[in-house]
């Protein structure tokens, strides 16, 4: 089947079998490898992408289902909201607070954080924990991930309230 999906603001047109998941479509058809497969049965969250602004698991969506939806992957996450041009505030905070080790769950964590901070600009640590509870990280024990997201939230709210947006 020929399908068209908006990924990171590009219209991707590819011929795929209906059985191809959005995860495999992004990785194999589009060639963006930043979205990772951890379990392929919906439990680990490594494959998380943004669909119309909300975090979803790309292994639990068929590519054909997402025709008409707007998908953002880790590669596109800084395009809408980039201060330095390279990394956005959340990515920067993950670097600074070392919210990762092996980096395998990281894309999913960052996109989940994106979705959270869009609707809750000043979450408590508990709210952050709840929001990322569907993303398993085996390396970090989550503490530095929560630190990263709290730092990002703080910076985002400061940026949003200060008149000078630099």
């Amino acid at each position: 089947m020929k399908i068209e999906i908006n990924i990171n603001n590009n219209i991707e047109i590819h011929e795929v079998e209906p059985r191809v998941t959005l995860l495999d479509f992004i990785r194999d058809n589009v060639g963006l490898k930043g979205t990772h497969a951890g379990c392929e049965h919906g439990v680990c969250g490594a494959c998380t992408v943004l669909m119309n602004g909300e975090a979803v698991r790309s292994c639990l969506v068929l590519a054909v289902q997402s025709m008409g939806d707007k998908i953002i992957t880790i590669e596109g996450v800084n395009s809408e909201d980039s201060e330095s041009g390279l990394l956005n505030i959340i990515q920067d905070a993950f670097c600074e607070k070392h919210g990762l080790q092996c980096g395998y769950c990281t894309s999913g964590m960052i996109l989940t954080a994106e979705a959270l901070l869009k609707v809750n600009t000043s979450p408590t640590r508990e709210e952050v924990r709840e929001a990322i509870s569907g993303n398993i990280c085996r390396c970090t024990g989550y503490v530095q991930i929560v630190d990263s997201i709290m730092l990002a939230a703080d910076r985002l709210s400061k940026r949003n309230t200060s008149p000078d947006k630099s």
């Binding site: 975090a55 639990l60 969506v61 989940t112 709840e130 569907g134």
Partner: peptide
């Protein structure tokens, strides 16, 4: 019910 990303779908 599951986690937030499950409930979105």
């Amino acid at each position: 019910v599951g986690h937030p990303p499950i409930r979105v779908r």
